Simulated scan of single mutants.
Amino acid sequence: MNPMLRWSRNGAVAGMLALFSLCLAWELWLAPLHPGGSWLALKALPLLCPLPGLVRGHRYTYQWTSMFVLAWFTEGVMRAWSERGASQYLAGVEIALSVVVFSCVVVYARFSRGVAR
């Protein structure tokens, strides 16, 4: 396998798992909206949907994941803008992780074009 494909696939999977973990920990323990956790932790569950396709290297999954992850980027931007304290820093991490996932899936989709044919 092309080293660029392997790097981008591993980065996308690792970034998606890290983003899932961050969203879950953020809303349950680190800085929940309500003491004891909130239902907002459910926002992490859709992040598990593309994982099987990412692990298997399905190009189509990488293509739609590039648009899918932008929802978490947008949430991170809005919460970094509107909140203070720990939530603002966690939002910055969410932004960074979503950019990593986006970059990795775009690179994979781009460099796997010839492989798919």
Rank of each mutant, 00 (worst) to 15 (best):
S66F: 03
W64Y: 10
L40G: 01
V107D: 03
A116F: 09
L5P: 03
E83P: 00
V107S: 10
Y62M: 06
R113F: 14
F111D: 13
L51D: 02
M67A: 12
Y89W: 10
T74Q: 05
L30N: 01
R59Y: 01
N10S: 14
M4T: 15
C104P: 10
F73K: 02
A12L: 13
A116E: 12
L47D: 06
V105R: 07
V106W: 09
F68P: 02
E94Y: 00
W81N: 05
E75C: 03
L24R: 06
C23V: 14
V105D: 01
V115G: 02
M4S: 14
I95S: 07
W72Q: 04
V99D: 04
P32W: 11
A71I: 05
M1K: 15
V69A: 04
V105H: 08
A86D: 07
E75N: 04
C104Q: 06
G114S: 11
W81Q: 05
R84T: 10
T65W: 00
V100Q: 01
A12V: 10
P50K: 00
A18F: 09
M4K: 13
L17G: 01
V93I: 12
A116L: 12
L42N: 08
A96E: 00
A12C: 15
S87C: 05
G114Q: 14
A31I: 09
M16F: 09
A116T: 14
L90K: 06
G37W: 09
T61V: 12
R56N: 04
G37P: 07
W72V: 03
L40K: 04
V106D: 01
S82W: 07
V115C: 06
L48R: 01
A80M: 11
W7L: 15
R59T: 08
Y108M: 12
M78H: 02
E27Y: 15
Q88M: 09
L19I: 12
P35V: 07
N2E: 11
T65Q: 08
V107C: 11
L40N: 00
T74N: 02
L48M: 08
A18L: 15
V77F: 07
S112C: 08
A71S: 03
L45I: 10
A91G: 10
R84V: 11
L40M: 09
V13C: 07
P50W: 01
S38I: 08
W26L: 01
L48V: 09
S87F: 06
F102A: 13
A44E: 06
L19R: 04
